[in-house]
């Protein structure tokens, strides 16, 4: 159900809603399934001239809703293919390892290759990735739309960007409203060659419509909400490696699986691209270095 996830999900969800008048959901308490704690590496960094952060923490048992335990005292090193070394330091002893660029300094440009090394008490974890290319955000347009089904009247936005020629480009579209990242799970917007995934076999065209419209804030029922004049919208495109795209695709489907009712997908694990060289438990999480383009507008 990845394709047209919004369309097909919403339609099946609505059918289920309309039809299963008699169905009900009860939150229940279950015994957890015990498993060993794993190292979680949150290493999504980019080529902007801002603080770059790699977070290390401990995984938790699924029903444990407490804050994750940070992993401190690790050595985190990033090496570029030209030999440049970037050291990430946990200055605040909170598991957030940071690299602070100097003026105009960035990690690199698209095409650069990076290796990550994390040393925790003698355990060595490594990962490699390439920073992929990113197209510019050409424009963000606004349009007043009349009352439609599942849509109140008001101003709605759409962004435009064109996928470069050649297949295998993947992106994460991040939308912001008044500076705030729209982080609803159902709003997680990933793109493969202008379409939803490699199977669409698109290439070199403007991102297709539902992707362009995912920058409007969704309400609790996952319905687009209108904008007010004076509000600001920012759209960022982050380039992804194929591993990162596959990771986010599974993550998105799993996070949203709870609303699929009788049509739920089987549980699937995301796949890390980080290896534990010391042979211990595999870590969770992903390493991606993104090239970023962005555009910000004010709604009129």
């Amino acid at each position: 159900m990845n394709h047209f996830n919004k369309i097909s999900r919403s339609i099946l969800g609505l059918l289920a809603l309309g039809v299963m008048i008699t169905s009900c959901e009860d939150v229940i308490v279950l015994d957890p399934i015990e498993s060993d704690t794993q190292l979680v590496i949150d290493a999504w960094i980019d080529n902007r001239n801002t603080t770059q952060t790699i977070s290390l923490s401990q995984s938790r048992q699924y029903f444990d809703n407490t804050t994750p335990e940070p992993v401190t005292n690790a050595n985190v090193t990033l090496t570029k293919n030209d030999g440049t070394i970037f050291i990430f330091n946990d200055n605040n002893q909170n598991g957030k390892y940071e690299w602070e660029p100097s003026t105009n300094e960035t990690l690199g440009i698209s095409g650069d290759h990076f290796s990550l090394e994390i040393d925790i008490n003698g355990d060595l974890l490594t990962a490699e990735t390439t920073m992929n290319r990113v197209p510019p955000v050409d424009s963000i347009t606004q349009e007043f739309r009349d009352d439609e089904i599942f849509l109140d009247d008001g101003i709605y936005l759409e962004f435009f960007a064109r996928d470069p020629q050649g297949t295998g480009d993947a992106y994460w579209i991040k939308a912001f409203k008044n500076g705030e990242f729209l982080n609803r799970a159902s709003q997680l917007n990933i793109v493969f060659d202008a379409g939803f995934d490699s199977g669409s076999q698109l290439d070199g065209i403007i991102f297709i419509p539902p992707i362009r419209e995912f920058i409007n804030e969704l309400d609790n029922d996952d319905i687009d909400t209108p904008w007010n004049p004076g509000e600001t919208s920012k759209v960022e495109i982050h380039s992804l490696s194929i591993n990162a795209f596959n990771f986010l695709e599974i993550a998105r489907d799993q996070i949203n699986n709870g609303s699929n009712g009788i049509f739920s997908l089987p549980l699937a694990n995301t796949r890390t691209n980080i290896t534990n060289e010391s042979g211990g438990l595999k870590p969770l999480g992903l390493f991606n270095v993104a090239a970023v383009s962005s555009l910000e507008i004010q709604v009129e």
Binding site: P32, Q38, D42, S59, R60, Y62, A251, L267, L284
Partner: peptide
């Protein structure tokens, strides 16, 4: 199939089954 584990990436909470088992 139930997840055993949760972890965070970029603010999203993701389920995981540490044993990679199906129908557990």
């Amino acid at each position: 199939t139930f997840p055993t584990t949760r972890f965070e990436q970029q603010g999203y909470i993701i389920p995981d089954n540490a044993f990679d088992s199906r129908n557990n």
